[in-house]
């Protein structure tokens, strides 16, 4: 009887261990945050977008850092800044705001792993093409 009890427990432990080995764990590798810079020229009534891949579900910060004339002179004009996912021929936003350039992030968004985008567009305030720089920090 003692032998049967030991066999029963052994079967239980082995079977249990077999199941435990199939337990799914989140498949997130450790990824160091990276900062990507999106630079370009924004035309009057124009827009431009930039796609990037998020590897870990960490916050994504978007900083519209500068808007300058071709001479290098900074301007305080507000533009539309959006965060979303690429779809069709554009970036479909889930978050957007009209903002001037700043040294502080205008968008802070938690994103699950996947492909995302940032779009900048003129709301009608531009009178000439301007150069912009946007910093995107993500994992």
């Amino acid at each position: 009887m003692t032998r049967l009890a030991v066999i029963g427990l052994f079967v239980c432990v082995v079977a249990g261990a077999g199941c435990q080995s199939e337990t799914t764990q989140p498949d997130y590798s450790i990824v160091s945050p990276v900062t990507e810079t999106f630079q370009g020229t924004l035309d009057v009534q124009g827009s431009a977008f930039f796609s990037f891949t998020v590897g870990n579900p960490d916050p994504v910060s978007v900083t519209f850092a500068s808007l300058t004339k071709s001479s290098g002179l900074a301007v305080a004009t507000s533009v539309r800044l959006g965060f979303g996912q690429p779809s069709g021929e554009t970036c479909v936003t889930t978050t957007a705001s009209t903002t001037p350039s700043s040294l502080q992030a205008q968008i802070l968004q938690v994103a699950t792993p996947g492909v995302y985008c940032v779009i900048i567009s003129d709301t009608g305030a531009l009178t000439e093409s301007l150069n912009f720089a946007i910093k995107i920090k993500h994992s």
């Binding site: 009890a5 066999i7 029963g8 427990l9 052994f10 079967v11 239980c12 079977a15 249990g16």
Partner: peptide
């Protein structure tokens, strides 16, 4: 104990 072990295993 034996029975529990066997049932658990199954």
């Amino acid at each position: 104990t034996c029975l529990l072990g066997l049932v658990g295993g199954v």
